[in-house]
Nucleic acid binder design. Structure first.
Lengths: 251, 251
DNA sequence: TCAAAAGTGTTCGTAGTACACCCATGT
DNA sequence: ACATGGGTGTACTACGAACACTTTTGA
């Protein structure tokens, strides 16, 4: 009996979100893989789970170790688990996917397993979302899970993320969109406090609309119950200084 | 490096829901374990994932093989993944938890690994939910995840489900409640079609209220967009025959 | 014909939307 | 002072809640 049991590798995949205050753009962290499979491909940051370590702990270790981030506090939550046999080439590995919302866009430093590590700008397209930096560009998919894994190419390509990371990213975007109106943890990428304008910027991106299309007055009325007032204003731009808010602690 | 990597057993845990048309009660399937750990304890049905098998497939196999169910079609969806080190005694095992909604309450037959297998009636309490049959009774918990795993006893007890199954069940109930208003897959336990009264029975249980407290007229107006009309009436009780509905296919 | 359950319609209150107007700051 | 953006307030609309009323069956 025991020999037919699967003991696959357990991969922790972490989708790390942040916000560039200068460009007012959402950022996602990608890593250029140093080892096969998918050597030299861009991918979501991953690590293997170790003995005597919970998956949650592994997700945190991944951030500190592999990317060189040393922030005191950040929020990590489970996204989903991906188990399709064809999601990896070679040895089978499950992916326990997590999302992390970093309150600041810290400088990066490629750690073990990474040739390079970069922030990619997250922008909406008509039907999908896009990650881009100076050189590369990746999009989310619009197919179903079944179709996606059916057509998943086994050969690395510069145009595609490694493994099934395009699909994982697609699921992540969908999840964030779904939660915007009742548990917008994504706003944690704005730091400990934020203005309504900054919040609307995030909402606009995931809803594929523009900042100005979200009325500030109405946004306040419909979402204030999710926020707490956090002191008064900070001044960065022209116009009346905005009030600051922070996320209400969950339940 | 390789020796510090964890290759835990992968447990598939399946929370199987059904509906007793005679008593109009929601049912959850529990198994009396035939082997240690937690031998003789009631537990959620589980199996180990095998080679060349996706987790989804393992969840389906679990139903057919271990419980003796041979239905042609049923819906299974991922619930969450449980990775706490203390969730098992002895060797470490992750749990990939799934939920299955059976369209009928088929007769059961204990398969491999089970001394007994029973439907337990699902009923709401003031602050929690309860599973009960003639002899035993289990409740969901109201503590947080951290508190729960901190206090998780390592010794089997007749009063408690095996492993962290109490917690998994709690998460399952919460998920179903959250989805009632936009993706009420739980209604699949009513069979291919259902009356509004039957649907309200399900809603009432998860919302800890009574059937009569949910106004039929208002319920129809607010939830009809999730349903399609499915032919006309069936006749079972006194009063005007009800129309039948079925769940709208997702997206 | 009466009770039980399903279905229809009406009123009312609340919550979201559109938009006008006022406030505070930098240039 | 004026442009820019933030904040407040108001009218309008839509949707859910409460509840009265009608319809269809079984006893």
């Amino acid at each position: 009996m025991a020999n037919i049991l699967e003991r696959p590798l357990i991969t922790i995949t972490n989708i790390i979100w942040s916000f560039n205050q200068a460009t007012q753009q959402i950022q996602v962290l990608l890593v250029k893989r140093a080892h096969d499979p998918f050597k030299n491909n861009w991918a979501l940051p991953e690590t293997f789970m170790r003995a005597n370590e919970s998956a949650d702990h592994a997700a945190l270790r991944l951030i500190k170790e592999k990317i060189g981030l040393t922030l005191a506090e950040f929020h990590t939550e489970q996204l989903a688990t991906f188990t399709n046999q064809h999601r990896t080439t070679g040895e089978r590995a499950l992916s326990l996917a997590y999302m992390t919302f970093l309150p600041e866009m810290t400088p990066l430093q490629a750690g073990y397993g990474a040739l390079d590590v970069r922030w990619f700008a997250f922008t909406p397209l008509e039907a999908a979302y896009q990650l881009s930096n100076q050189d590369c560009l990746f999009q989310t998919t619009t197919t179903t899970a079944d179709e996606y894994y059916q057509d998943l190419p086994q050969t690395p390509s510069d145009q595609q993320l490694a493994f099934d990371h395009q699909w994982i990213l697609t699921v992540a975007c969908q999840r964030i969109l779904n939660k915007l109106d009742y548990q917008p943890n994504i706003l944690m990428i704005l730091g400990p406090s934020f203005t309504l304008r900054e919040a609307r910027t995030i909402y606009a991106a995931f809803r594929k609309t523009s900042l100005t299309a979200i009325d500030n007055s109405n946004f306040k009325k419909t979402h204030q119950h999710l926020f707490l007032e956090a002191g008064t204003t900070s001044q960065l731009r022209v116009g009346r200084p905005a009030r600051l808010y922070r996320l209400k602690p969950q339940n």
